Amino acid sequence: MHHSRLSTLVFDCRTADLKQAADFWSQALGKPVVSYDQDGDGKYAELATLADEPIILLQRVDHDSRVHLDIETDDLEAEAKRLESLGARRIDLVRGRWWVMEAPSGQRFCVVQKQREAFGPHLNRWE
Rank of each mutant, 00 (worst) to 15 (best):
M1Q: 04
H2L: 12
H3E: 10
H3L: 03
S4G: 03
L6E: 01
L6I: 15
L6P: 07
S7C: 08
T8R: 04
T8A: 10
T8M: 11
L9Y: 10
V10D: 00
D12W: 00
D12R: 12
A16R: 05
D17W: 09
Q20T: 14
A21Q: 11
A21E: 08
W25E: 02
W25R: 01
S26F: 13
A28M: 14
A28W: 09
L29I: 06
G30S: 04
G30P: 10
G30A: 12
K31C: 10
P32D: 02
P32G: 09
V33A: 06
S35D: 10
D37Y: 04
D37E: 02
Y44T: 11
L47W: 01
L47S: 01
A48K: 13
A48D: 08
T49N: 04
T49S: 11
L50Q: 12
E53C: 13
E53D: 14
I55A: 05
I55W: 02
I55N: 05
I55R: 11
L57S: 06
L57F: 15
L57E: 03
L58I: 08
R60P: 06
V61W: 00
D62M: 09
D62W: 00
D62T: 15
H63N: 00
H63L: 05
H63F: 08
D64P: 08
S65W: 03
R66Y: 12
R66N: 12
H68Y: 05
H68S: 12
H68V: 10
D70C: 12
I71P: 00
T73P: 06
D75Y: 03
D75N: 14
L76T: 02
L76Q: 04
A78L: 08
E79Y: 06
E84R: 09
E84K: 13
S85G: 13
S85Q: 09
S85L: 15
G87P: 10
G87H: 05
A88M: 04
A88G: 04
A88V: 03
R89E: 10
I91F: 00
L93N: 08
V94G: 01
R97I: 13
W98Q: 05
W98V: 03
W99Q: 04
W99S: 06
V100K: 08
V100W: 06
V100R: 05
M101I: 05
E102Y: 06
E102D: 00
A103G: 09
A103T: 14
A103E: 04
A103R: 02
P104Y: 14
S105V: 09
G106T: 11
Q107T: 06
Q107P: 03
F109P: 01
V111W: 01
Q113M: 13
Q113W: 04
K114T: 13
Q115E: 11
Q115A: 14
E117M: 14
A118P: 05
F119M: 07
G120H: 08
L123H: 04
L123E: 07
R125S: 12
E127Y: 02
